[in-house]
Structures are given as C-alpha cells and as structure tokens.
Design a protein around this nucleic acid. Structure first.
Lengths: 276, 276
DNA sequence: ATGTCTTACGGAAGACGTAATAATA
DNA sequence: TATTATTACGTCTTCCGTAAGACAT
C-alpha cells in the first residue's frame, strides 16, 4: 500500500512545490498529480502539503515523510539500475547536456570512445543554456552535464576536472583594458562586471551570446574562459587574460543518486579523452 | 519504473523461495506472482531466480538486488506507517498472537488497557502454536506475539520481560522424581528430556498438550514453566520445581521493521500491566 | 503421479488525459 | 484578471483470478 506512482508524485511535488512542474517532470497531467496526492493524503489521514491555488508547501507530516523516504527510494532506484546494468550490460540511453562549443567539441571525442566501447548504449547529446544545467539534471532529463566547475549542491556530484583554461575578461573593443596585455583581478573593481550564468547564481545574461552582446554594447565587462576568444571572436570585443586569476575548470556533473554504470563508464571515457 | 507490487513480489519470493507461499503472503494467486516476477526479469534482462518447477533460488543479480533493496523498502513502509499514525492517531488493526492460557490471560488485561487508551485501534488476538510464532511474525500475519524469551533472530526484536516464572519439570505421576520436593538441572542427565517448542528449535511435540501426553505415556520428561501446573493439572503427571534453573521469561516479539506506533503503544501497555 | 511453476484468457479496477470549475493574488 | 489547483468523466492500460498446460521429481 503505497504505490510507486504515489511515491514519485509525492517526492517530486515535495521538491518542486508546484503541481505544474511536478506533472512536467513526471510526464503526466497536473490533474493526475493533484488526484494522486489527494488520494495519498486521504489514506495517511493528514495533509501532506499546505496549499492554496497560489502556494504549495510541505506540512509537518509531509516533511517528516519526505526526509525519511527520499534517501531510501533513491537507494532502491539506484539498485534497480545496477541490476539492469549487470543484467544486460551497458544498454539503454545516456543523455548528456553541454554548454558552449568547446564543451561540445570535447564531447564529440568522448562520445566516439564511449560508443566504441559500449555499442549497445545509446548516447544523446543536447546543448543547454547554463541556467538549464541544474534543472535538467534534477528533473532527470539528462543523466550527465559537461559544465563549469564548481557546483556546490548537495544532490549533484562533480566529476574530476577535464579541462582547465585561462580566465579572461571580455571588454568592449574601445575600452582602455583592450590595450592591456594582462589584467589583475583587482582591476575588476574599477568596472561593471556583468554576471554570467557559468560563474554566478544570479545571472543577468542567460547565454554567452547575450553576455557578449551586452559587453559589446558597453554595458560592462564579462569574465569568460579562454575558449570564448576562439569561438566568439567579434569585432566589437577584445579578450584580455588575467595574470593572477584561478583558471576556469570544466567537468562532468551528475545527480548523486544517478551514478549508474552508464554514467560511470562515460565519466571514465571522458577522463581518458581529456588526458590523452 | 519498478512498481510496488513487483517489488513486494520480488522481496517476498526472495524470502520464501516458493511461489505458493509467496502468493499466500501477498494474498494473490501464484499465477500472478509468476507473471510479475517474469515481467520484472524481462525488464532487468536477467533471471532474478534460478528455478525449476521444484526448486527456487536467488540468482547472483537477484541476491545483490535483494540485499540492496530490502532495508530501503522496510524503511519506506515504516516511514509511511509512522505518517499514517501521526496523521490519524492510532488507528487500524493490531494483530497479536499468543501461546498458552497464561499468556492469553495476561493479554486480556493488556488489551483492555490498550483499547481504553486507543479506542480507534482494533486489536485482534489469535492463539498460536509455539512453532507458528516466528512464521506468523515474518509473514506479517501478526504484528506482535507474546512468547517465551529468548528468541535470537536478526529480523525479530524482543521487548522487555513481562513475566518471569519458575522452570519446572513435568514427569509421569509414578516417576521417582515425582516424590522429590525439588530437582537440580543436573538431574536431567539421568532422564529423557522431550523437546518442547517453547524451549527448543527441534521440537518433537508441537503443542503443550502433545508434550504432556507424551510425558504421561512415560516417553520422557518435559521442561515447562510454572504456569503449566495450574492450567494443565493432570492425574497422570506431576510437576517438580528446579532449585537452580534460570526462570522462564515471557515477553513480546515483533519484526524489527514492524515497530509501528501501534506496536510500541501495545508494548507500553503490556509493560504497565505486567508491573502493576 | 503429484506437487509446482507457467501460459491463456476474460473481467474489473484504476491510472490517465481533456475539459470545465473553483480559488487565490 | 491571470495563474494555478481541483473536479468530472470517458478511455484504456494492466493487474488480477480461473483454468488448463508443462515440467520435474
């Protein structure tokens, strides 16, 4: 008595706190989520969520239940995944997200190696905007993402660093910094730094192109990785390296409860390609 | 993807290793168990059980899966039970097994107190043969059992001792021991001791009456608790106390993953009745 | 030959989506 | 008024038991 679909509806709603998004993640209608949760609450005998048509939040019993069953259910799904993997070897689909042409190019090589080794496992690559990466991972829309480290989230694991590149500043072509050979981090205090999703949690630009356009328009400057200079050379911009900044590091991300054999095997392939 | 009914069919079959008993525990037909497991195996891509129509045993992947999933699922069901308890207070049914008239009499008092405190929770009492106690607990047919301590099983928990009584020996009326005021444990070496389910794992008598009948027929002697003398006084038997034996101890037993609020509340009531 | 697992098939339960409704900010 | 949760209802999947079959001892 506590069906899988009820469990997942409850867990997902507890995370999303929104019937629409929950339904989307579960690929069902919002009506179904509502009815499923309502039925569960009737059986428990108490509201699991306090909600109006505008806000959803966990009740006390709901929170307690969530905390107790979330890790256990992750364990079960992971164990099942492992059983499938050892049952049929590496099969199924592995969905990988990336952001930016440099990451894409790296993934091409990794994917070739992976497909070579595991021909029965399908690999699907999707480009993501930086702000999509974590939501996609959390929703299970992708199993892996190649993104900028560091991501400090409890439910997401970072793999080893695959690429390290110099941190550079994108400035308008006419800016005084454009004539400098190098910059120091201290120089940033004298200019407006536009936030960029790869390096910040509160972005003003959702994509690299948006950021660079803003910089070109003189709205400010932007911190980017060295690859940007190669892939996004523009007449209205100049890129100047820092002399004392930490490098930008790229690596794979996956959900901490999503470390399936597929994910681990892809991580192995990625590390080999990056090192070789 | 791993429905509750599949999970329970798998876990139960892994414990019973028998489709018929599994079906019985799950209250479904054996055909259903067979189809459910078969479907699960198709999805995993490997046999979970090696079986003929005569023998069922866990495969390697099956064993791995069982060990990883068993504790997690227990956690989930227990958490759900707790949610229901805190949601509607103590409701539902509590099924308690006991063995022997003395235990039954104690349970009458405990049940009265429990019903007084938790009028919304139904209590069902069933008498069990000593050999039924553990199977019934494991199958979830009862939530609690009042039985002889000690039971040393990993999946069964013993509550505190509720009753302590002298250990006595049942002997034929004409036996030389029948004229003794007391016996020592050493005396047992000179006679045939019939095993009794309450005190042994390899019984020759399934019930107390069977044991006493055998003793009366001169087949041997039997070790029993003092209450037996009161409830099973027979002309063909004599009961003689030991002077140096450990007392017989009675207490409640429940499944280690079945410590619901109902079970705990009944345990509390039992302890109060036994002490008061 | 008997007990046990599996296959075949018809019926019922309930999970699902669409569309209309209620409620909140 | 717009957004979001809930209710109503018809469809369809699939879970289920019965009964017959296959298999091993």
């Amino acid at each position: 008595m506590l069906e899988r679909h009820e469990l997942e509806a409850f867990l997902t709603l507890a995370e999303e706190l929104h019937f629409g998004r929950t339904a989307e993640r579960l690929h069902v209608s919002t009506a179904r989520v509502s009815q499923t949760v309502a039925k569960l609450e009737r059986r428990v005998g108490a509201l699991l969520f306090n909600r109006t048509s505008r806000r959803v939040e966990l009740s006390l019993v709901g929170r307690q239940l969530y905390e107790e069953i979330r890790p256990a259910w992750s364990q079960i799904t992971a164990a099942f995944e492992r059983a499938v993997d050892s049952g049929r070897g590496l099969t199924g689909v592995l969905r990988v997200a990336f952001n930016g042409p440099a990451a894409g190019q790296l993934l091409v090589g990794v994917t070739q190696l992976f497909r070579d080794r595991h021909p029965d496992c399908d690999v699907q690559i999707r480009e993501a905007n930086p702000s999509d990466v974590l939501p996609w991972l959390r929703a299970g829309e992708v199993d892996l993402a190649l993104a900028c480290h560091p991501v400090r989230e409890e439910d997401v694991v970072m793999g080893p660093v695959l690429v390290r590149e110099a941190r550079m500043l994108a400035v308008p072509a006419g800016h005084s910094f454009a004539r400098r050979a190098t910059l120091s981090v201290g120089d940033l205090e004298r200019v407006t730094v536009l936030q960029h999703p790869e390096t910040s949690c509160a972005p003003t630009a959702m994509t690299v192109n948006e950021l660079l356009t803003l910089v070109g328009a003189g709205e400010g400057v932007g911190v980017v990785g060295a690859h940007t200079r190669r892939y996004f050379a523009r007449p209205d911009l100049a890129y100047v390296p820092f002399e004392n900044a930490e490098p930008v590091e790229w690596g794979l991300l996956w959900r901490s409860d999503g470390a399936t054999a597929r994910v681990r095997a892809f991580g192995d392939a990625a590390l080999e390609v990056a090192q070789g």
